[in-house]
Design a protein around this nucleic acid. Structure first.
Lengths: 237, 237
DNA sequence: CAGTGGTCTAGACCACTGA
DNA sequence: CAGTGGTCTAGACCACTGA
């Protein structure tokens, strides 16, 4: 019992929020409730909740109470970008053209698929992102059907797969790998470009509380897209 | 006077640390000192200093006191990469070959240079990064001579310019722009590659407390380098 | 206008650790 | 072993804001 009480309270709620037991928008107990539950002073409860608020996991509003924060697409230092939003922010029309979608078992010979879905099923989608009807990115994506059951039937008319996931399944861990390559024959065809055209290639894996959500590989025309990340000194509470 | 007192204390010290007035390793006043200076209770002082510790700006040690944290190269979510360290971590020999270095006035017609150095001078360096004697990146860099006077005479035998800066002038803000392009004639020549070879292009600007430090443009051979960024849920105090 | 969180006080006991 | 920070208490007054 060397762990401070405020830290125990904090990690209790962190775990419940990351596990989804407390859903976004849901109300947490008041400080008064927690004083009783943990049999401690208000300052101790307040310290725990203030830390969660500083970390962006909860929102606190006077008179209204404390709530699980809505996932904020822009909270991370290097966003998982919402391509649709970025294109529209530049004043262009955004479009997503689906090439294929399938629900199937993970291939035991593909480490990537096993890491994502284990022995379960996954959804495989591919498509092209367009700005003003011109394709600028080709996307291949795998989504764990076990982690995101609703994805197989999701409608991508208004939101492309990446945006749909951002809105429905906020991730907690992510890994990006960014490189450059020349477009393959298939990629070049979908992007209306020549084979070998310099492209930015982004591979990304995301997790939620340790469970794999999605693997995606996006190939951007080099002259049509830049990733920008800006960050400053850590901004405390 | 609507700003909370703990926030005023926190931002006072944040400003003094970022400005360099309090140097890394330097001791801050004790909580007792600050209770007197700000005429408040210990909890208020403690809240301010705890926030700075959580943000990584200070280290607190019992009995010893509170100290300005040593700059930690790896503190940021997406590092400004230390290429030399990365190459060596892969078991390869790292080398930096300087192509040119010059101290000159900022060109008033170049917005990039004016933004960095105003009407002052800057140091312009270019060179090639090598792994096992093979070039993999071409670098063009501008450094504000006013912000980093020692840079003009720095020795890059052991540390290339980027590593030297990381060790001598910790930045507080950074902006990365990442794209793909085909190698130009000059770039291709320095990289021993064909013109048009797909390359990853990273442009970066860094600041320290609002003052520009450096602008750098690095062109990596696409098949020789990937940027990897991994990050998880914000880790509170 | 009443419930909620934001802030602050003036203490207390304790763990740690460097002089 | 004494100084420092870590934690916690049991209160207090206040600002805000939704019922």
């Amino acid at each position: 019992m060397k762990q401070p009480l405020h830290e125990r309270i904090r990690s209790d709620f962190e775990a419940r929020i990351l596990a989804g037991e407390l859903a976004p928008g849901e109300r947490l107990p008041t400080e008064q409730d927690l004083i009783v539950e943990y049999d401690c002073s208000r300052m101790t409860v307040n310290k725990a909740l203030s830390a969660l608020a500083a970390a962006g996991l909860i929102d606190r509003r006077k008179r209204a109470g404390t709530f699980v924060a809505r996932p904020r697409v822009h909270s991370m230092v290097l966003d998982v970008p919402d391509l649709a939003e970025q294109v529209r922010a530049r004043g262009q029309r955004y479009g997503y053209v689906q090439i294929a979608r399938a629900l199937r078992a993970a291939d035991p010979d593909e480490p990537e698929e096993v890491a994502l879905a284990g022995e379960g099923e996954l959804v495989e989608v591919s498509g092209v992102h367009c700005a003003d009807e011109e394709p600028f990115a080709f996307e291949y994506r795998l989504v764990s059907a076990g982690a995101v059951p609703a994805f197989a039937q999701a409608d991508f008319a208004s939101d492309p797969p990446g945006t749909w996931l951002l809105h429905h399944v906020p991730w907690t861990e992510a890994e990006n790998r960014i490189g450059a390559l020349g477009a393959s024959r298939e990629e070049a065809e979908h992007l209306h470009a020549a084979v070998g055209t310099p492209c930015l290639c982004v591979e990304r894996r995301t997790w939620r509380g340790g469970e794999g959500i999605t693997y995606v590989r996006q190939v951007f025309l080099g002259d049509a897209y830049d990733l920008v990340a800006r960050f400053g000194a850590a901004a405390p509470a």
